[in-house]
Amino acid sequence: MKVLVFYVNSFEYTPNQKSLDIAPDCPTATTIINDAILAFIHAEPSDQDENLKSRDKKLANHLKWCCRKNNTTNVIIHSFAHLAEAKADWEFTQNLLNQCDIRLKNGGFVTHQTPFGHFLDLKIDAPGHSLARLWKTL
């Protein structure tokens, strides 16, 4: 699994078009989230060979660490299948993100998931300081 994390002052997204035919329709309104960790998450085929619970726990722990380093409890979970050449099945990826979301909420974090299976128009306001941008292989 590859994870690219930004601390954002603000993040805006507007659904543009479906990237996955089975994705449900979603409102086209713009969503704005402030003071958050924005995680671009790419699940790989090798992640499917491991226990889902171990993978979502590892992801959640990394995101909690990023939050602590940036003094926030807000997390934006975004599926981003462009950080490696091979990707996991969409069903696995969606389950991974949903389980991570639940784990974070149970830990007292405020979570937001971007619409799965949609291309989004994005606006990102990210400061340029240490630990505001992190990349990790989990």
Rank of each mutant, 00 (worst) to 15 (best):
I22P: 00
N98C: 04
D101R: 14
D101N: 15
N34H: 15
P15K: 01
F92L: 09
S79Q: 12
N95K: 06
K57N: 10
A43K: 04
K87S: 15
F116S: 10
P127W: 10
A29C: 00
Y7N: 07
F40M: 15
V75Q: 05
N106T: 05
H82R: 04
T72A: 03
F116H: 14
D101E: 15
D35A: 10
N34L: 12
K123S: 13
E50H: 13
T30N: 00
P24R: 01
I22M: 08
A86H: 04
A39L: 14
R68A: 15
D47Q: 09
G117D: 04
K53D: 11
Y13H: 13
L38C: 12
V8Q: 07
F116V: 09
I33E: 11
I76S: 04
D89T: 10
C66N: 07
Y7D: 09
N16V: 05
F11Q: 00
K69F: 04
R68Y: 14
H42A: 10
P24A: 02
K53G: 02
A84H: 12
S46E: 11
N70F: 07
K57P: 02
F109L: 15
N98K: 07
I76G: 02
I22Q: 07
A36Q: 10
R68T: 15
D89H: 05
Y7V: 05
T114W: 01
E44S: 13
D125L: 06
L104S: 07
A36V: 12
I41L: 07
P45D: 05
R55W: 06
D25V: 05
Q113W: 01
A23L: 03
P127D: 08
T28L: 14
D35E: 14
A43D: 04
D47E: 11
K18A: 06
G108N: 12
H42R: 11
F116A: 10
K123C: 13
L52K: 09
C66P: 02
F109C: 14
K64D: 07
N98S: 03
H62S: 03
T14F: 08
K53W: 02
D25I: 05
I32L: 13
L4V: 08
L83Y: 03
L63H: 00
N61F: 01
G117W: 03
D89L: 04
A36D: 11
D89K: 04
T14A: 08
K57L: 14
T114E: 02
I32T: 15
C100E: 00
A43S: 14
F80H: 10
V8W: 07
Q48G: 02
W90P: 01
E85T: 13
P45H: 07
T111Q: 12
H112A: 02
F11L: 03
C100R: 00
C100T: 14
H78I: 01
S79R: 09
V8G: 06
